[in-house]
Design a protein around this nucleic acid. Structure first.
Lengths: 169, 169
DNA sequence: AGAGATGGGACAGCCATATTGACGTATCTT
DNA sequence: AAGATACGTCAATATGGCTGTCCCATCTCT
């Protein structure tokens, strides 16, 4: 189980998990990694006059077609009003469409239009490039560890929601 | 040092690093992990009438005492005006103080006051709890992988800056 | 059939955080 | 003395959140 020589700047974690230094390191890497990744798609969004909030909605609708409004609200953890504005923008640009639910006609099922799918796929390419590069540099066992730690950061009550996203690949 | 049985929900990464599913999984876990971690300190911040932007400044000043304004600007990657407001708020609450640089008197060296240190430490406890729990559940090798992948997400030109934070532990 | 719960939409108003561009002052470098 | 740099500040603007309230359509339960 040799440490790959690809990432020599990273010494292995010490057995003392609770030391401040290791916690700070995680905080910092998460901050920089997350913010830099999100910035990688800003340009593509700006071309359409959209922001990151729009991308988050697009992303999760792409991931789970026929998602309902309330399911999306749980995922994003924002208010109905905030989401409403975002979805109106996306509908106005013909990126998202809704139908009413067949079982429960009060529900609105969200889907990307063809145009929306194309746009989401284009944004996703930037994410894919960044993450694939990082995965390749870190090595396979590192990716598994990356996932495991992040899962542990998600509160137990939210984990089922995240797992559901990844069920129907 | 067996992988603890705490995280059985995570199968190992496939060797095919570039598959869409694995990229989407990383995107989602990063989103949920990052947003949930940041939310864990909102309450403490709100007690002082501060927001996340204030915490980011506090955090990095705590981490690198005598940081200059321009160094902090590079770390946060926001504009001078945005940072200015944040620092004014922190000074007004007596959490941050400045002295002018000894070598270059144009510079302002940022430091936490005693009060600022106490407050930052209090906020840090919430981060420590979350991350330490996730680290412990994932196991030591996972933590190393978590760091390696995140490092790969940071653009090369920013890596020296991040490494500098972690040099003087 | 009627009552209440639920899914969703919309009003008004507010706040936090970011942006650009221009300009000013003190200080350092050459 | 001239120019570059570090920092501060003006004004205007955008984004993305929030609360509170009220409404309508539809489903569920009695």
């Amino acid at each position: 189980m040799a440490v790959p020589s690809l990432a020599p700047a990273t010494p292995a974690a010490s057995p003392l998990f609770l030391r401040e230094h290791e916690v700070r390191r995680g905080v910092e890497l998460l901050f920089f990694g997350y913010t830099r990744l999100t910035r990688s798609i800003d340009e593509g969004l700006a071309e359409h006059g959209l922001g990151r909030a729009h991308h988050r909605a697009l992303y999760f609708i792409a991931r789970q077609p026929d998602l309902t409004i309330s399911e999306l609200l749980k995922i994003l953890a924002i208010t109905k009003q905030s989401l409403g504005r975002v979805l109106n923008d996306l509908s106005a640009r013909n990126l998202v469409e809704t139908r009413s639910g067949s079982a429960d006609r009060r529900q609105k099922l969200l889907r990307l239009t063809g145009e929306g799918k194309t746009f989401e796929a284009q944004l996703f390419e930037a994410l894919r490039t960044s993450l694939a590069t990082a995965y390749a540099a870190a090595g396979q066992e590192s990716v598994t560890g990356f996932w495991r730690v992040l899962e542990g950061l998600i509160p137990a009550e939210d984990r089922a929601m995240v797992a559901a996203l990844q069920k129907d690949i």
